[in-house]
């Protein structure tokens, strides 16, 4: 890998983060809304301040957040802060910083989403490959069907249904929260069990609905590939079914599938916003949802840019992995 390519990739990465930061910075400023005023409005609404105080407090906060400066200066400073992963103070949780809000929420989301995404990707890709593979036994191929049918159920609705039937009606699993009230997290078996009990429903909500998507795309890919001459050739060469499946078929079909994985992360985060909310998990999704409701723009910036950086980094890595998966591109 030449130095030039590495610089190009890095430049691309910077461009992605810059584009996201710029969009996120300017769009809210196109409207005449004032997040700080709205925040205090929210507090004043419930009667916390007496008339007259608010304007002064707002002015003081404006200064604190640098909103009294010219917009270009704000933008410049903002870009500088992003380079340091410093998104400023949360508006609704001052003086906690947006970075701390993200850090507090991140473990929950990584735990839930990474596991569910990887699980559904692996299950879906394998089931999809099998479903499109004419030599697979019938019962194995039909395994994919229920998952394809479940694609019609968005994680949000799946979450609501699971919560209603399993949580409310059957009372098998807890209704919400990350762990039981009053328990303090420790490295113990009993805490781990309690934790797991609370994760089952949200994880199911995310997995059940998303396996089908991978099945579908993999199946489409598989169907296209299995007519290819090199697969036919391999068959005629007398290679075993399993070997063809793995080396010729799965590997070639996997390429677009992997592209999909990086793209899917954005969608998965979207689902998480609401699924985490339904089950009251204190992850990024919940933090984001609360920030949107409170118009807590440093946290919104922070989360959007943080997610963007994560996805961009993943895609940059994939750019390096791509040639390894498809020899034809490597030659170019």
């Amino acid at each position: 890998m030449s130095f030039k390519i590495v610089v190009k990739r890095l430049l691309f990465f910077v461009l992605v983060v810059w584009a996201a930061s710029t969009i996120v910075f300017f769009i809210p400023r196109l409207s005449s809304r004032n997040a700080i005023r709205e925040r205090f409005g929210e507090l004043a609404r419930t009667g916390g301040f007496s008339p007259g105080d608010i304007e002064k407090m707002i002015a003081s906060m404006q200064q604190q957040f640098g909103l009294d400066k010219p917009i270009f200066e704000q933008y410049w400073q903002y870009l500088g802060n992003i380079m340091r992963l410093d998104f400023g103070y949360s508006l609704s949780k001052y003086p906690t910083t947006a970075t701390e809000v993200i850090a507090q929420a991140l473990p929950w989301t990584i735990g839930l989403l990474l596991v569910t995404t990887v699980l559904s990707f692996v299950m879906g890709t394998l089931l999809g490959a099998v479903a499109a593979w004419p030599k697979a036994p019938g019962w194995l191929r039909s395994l994919a069907t229920p998952f394809i049918l479940l694609t019609g159920v968005p994680p949000v609705i799946m979450g609501i249904l699971l919560l209603f039937f399993i949580g409310f009606r059957l009372k098998w699993l807890p209704l919400g929260g990350a762990y039981s009230a009053g328990i303090v997290p420790t490295w113990s078996w009993s805490f781990f069990l309690d934790l797991m009990q609370h994760q089952i429903l949200p994880a199911l909500a995310l997995i059940l609905g998303s396996v089908g998507g991978w099945v579908l795309s993999m199946r489409g890919m598989g169907i296209t590939i299995q007519g290819e001459d090199y697969v036919n050739f391999a068959e005629h060469k007398g290679l075993t079914g399993g070997r063809i499946f793995r080396d010729y078929y799965l590997r070639n079909a996997l390429l677009p599938q992997v592209t999909g994985l990086a793209l899917a992360l954005g969608t998965v985060i979207t689902s998480a916003v609401i699924v985490e909310g339904i089950f009251g998990l204190p992850g990024i999704g919940t933090a984001l949802n609360l920030a949107i409701r409170a118009n807590d723009f440093p946290v919104i910036y922070g989360i959007v840019i943080f997610i963007t950086i994560a996805i961009a980094a993943l895609m940059t890595i994939l750019e390096f992995v791509y040639p390894l998966l498809d020899p034809r591109i490597r030659e170019n």
Partner: peptide
């Protein structure tokens, strides 16, 4: 217990 962002259904049931 933090119930912000949880559906009212759940809070009521708890």
């Amino acid at each position: 217990v933090n119930i912000l962002n949880q559906p009212m259904d759940t809070v009521a049931q708890r």
